[in-house]
Amino acid sequence: MTDLLQLLIAGLATGAIYALAAIGFTLLWQTSQTINFAQGEFVMVPAFFALAAMRLLGLPFLAALVLAILLSMLLLGVVFRYAVVGPLIQRGVLPLVISTIALSILLKEAVKDFYSAEALPFPPLLPDAPVSFAGVVVSQAQLGVLAVALLVIVLLQWFLAGTRTGRQMQATAQNPSVALILGVPVQRMILYTFLINAALAAVASLLISPIYLAKFSNGETLGLVAFVAAIVGGFNQVRGAIAGGLLIGVLDNLAAAYLSTAYRQAIPLVLLVLIILFRPQGLLGRREERSI
């Protein structure tokens, strides 16, 4: 029982990070029909921004983290929106998908060539010490990761539902033409979703790199898992991506402990197949409009 509880907490902590990356998939899809196959690399790169800021600019850790998030929003948000998505989106979804795959390769190779092909230690944001309650020993870092990720998710939900800009973004997602007629600055709303996606990816990066170590290839698995999480949860709902991420995190840990480590990576894919067969809109998704 203690084992199970520990596995659940560890799974939720990892799952919350998957959720952050998965939310980005749903946001971009809803507002601009972009399926970003470089999402995993968007989670890998910010850690290297922070490492470079510390090593090359000599910034303290916290300042490097802030700079990494801002730089991600600029390069992975604004530049991605205008240099990649803008020109290609008129050509349809497929050319954009292919160009994001190319972007993922470019980012991976760039980090490998300009920084390092080796894994690098990344300082933990939260203390490593274990805490125990009722016989269960978990790490403060795990609880912290879970708390930070959930806080970010709650803030995002509040922003989307409780602010004027958030509701304008939702309107843009639901029907851009009508939103435009009603006076919503659609293009600006689309840019906001790219900024939010980049910021979420950066937070995920800073939370996961102390566990995974910063490495150019980290995005390969993360991108796939986040994509699967978004589909499992529901590609057209932010809350679906959150549920998908958490579910996959927990299942991954339970599978590693009770089935086999060798098959743990297959679990999300099996889940994906089952969802596509029996509930194609995802667990919490709306039956819709635009299917993928």
Partner: peptide, 8 residues
């Protein structure tokens, strides 16, 4: 990348 389950 993730050894949480193995350590548990």
């Amino acid at each position: 990348a993730d050894f949480a389950a193995d350590v548990i």
